[in-house]
Nucleic acid binder design. Sequence first.
RNA 1: CGGGGCGUAGCGCAGUCUGGUAGCGCACUUGAAUGGGGUUCAAGGGGUCGGAGGUUCAAAUCCUCUCGCCCCGACCA
Length: 437
Amino acid sequence: MAKQVKTAISPTRNEDYPEWYQQVIKASDLAERSPVRGCMVIKPWGYALWENIVQAMDNLFKATGVKNAYFPLFIPLSFLEKEAEHVEGFAKECAVVTHHRLEKGEGGRLEPAGPLAEPLVVRPTSETIIGDSFSRWVSSYRDLPILINQWANVVRWEMRTRIFLRTSEFLWQEGHTVHATAEEALERTRMMLDVYTTCVEEYLAMPVIQGHKSPAERFPGAVDTLCIETMMQDRKALQSGTSHFLGQNFARASEIKFQSAAETEEYAWTTSWGSSTRMIGGLIMTHGDDDGIILPPKVASAHVVLLPIIRKPGDQQSVMDFTEKLALELKEQTYHQRKVVVEIDDRDIGGARGWDWIKKGIPLRVEIGPRDIAQNSLFVGRRDQASNENKAIDRDQFVAAITDILDEIQQNLFQRALAHRKEHTVAIEDKKTFYEF
RNA sequence: CGGGGCGUAGCGCAGUCUGGUAGCGCACUUGAAUGGGGUUCAAGGGGUCGGAGGUUCAAAUCCUCUCGCCCCGACCA
């Protein structure tokens, strides 16, 4: 008799949301905790998801004229001291490198040796080190604008970490631009917020609300910080990207000056904008259900898993042939600039196999047995539908329709998240009502 | 960093109060039977009991210190 298990994940979201989050990640095969405090190991299933997000976002950046570059991991301590408010905000929570050698000490232990003349800070963000380069890249208004992005890791020694949502080290992109006028810099600040909105809504299927951060929440040294927020299933908001108008603050700190057409020397206007692996945390908390994560097709690590069902040894050959031929045809389909990614799972582990893929959030599961082959059909389960709602679909129709089905899932996930947000949003016009609420 | 909880096999836990041969479930390996929703049976492998020091004939268990994890709070640029 099959074990009576109602949901693949325990506890459910309603029972204990934070614990559900931990469990759903464990079951998803996306990532795991590492021996290093607050740091995570991103496993292949999770990294493929990140690569797809990177790809989508990178294309959107480049479409606005942004180019990628790379700057050092280490920032001289003195660089961080240049911008007064920046100093305030970044004085804490940084990893600092003070030595450059290890020596064998007492009892064979390795001990730091060779103190550095100036400590190096592992970048928590790169305004200052990139600003240093910009100061040399800019001398004339003809050099502007400069539109740079880097994909990198950064370290922020947070007191409390949660996998994907806030880790000591995380992967992100940081864009840094330099402009001749405040208007142009402001326009860029808003433009990149729109790019984030597009990416998060169209690829991650998460409805976004744009806004301004309060002065207290503003990036240290910024004149204005714009952000996008998304509502999780526990009805809390998650910041999923920020875009900063830095005014001339960092230009003054880093001496980014240029000669204008009117032959005057002026400080440039800069922006910076970032988004990180936290988006994956948001994705999990937006779409996940009590059976695990649900990956939106446009960024899913894989689109469809084929599950051959072999009952008798004699069926092995014909089922596998049918499966592999189907895989080849599916892989030829293109879904939003990406070839359809197909997994074949022929492990002989019974029903646990299907549940593995449900927990991993793959959009489509296809069971292939002798019965299906006889009828040239497939038994298809969609991750955005109940786990027992599988349907028989004609094989050739499925191949022809797979991109439409994936689109349907993508849309469905977005609409579901949007409905959830609407249901739990209240418009409040005055302070009194707000505090009462 | 403050409050609370917890560290025993890959995961989840019992054993700790009352010191006496290291256990259970799942996972894993092998074999067999099954087979379209977590199947069953059998036989196996795997543990410095987070770490260090102490008490004792004897420590997972008692004492001291320490490290780490989870939740809440502050922080989250």
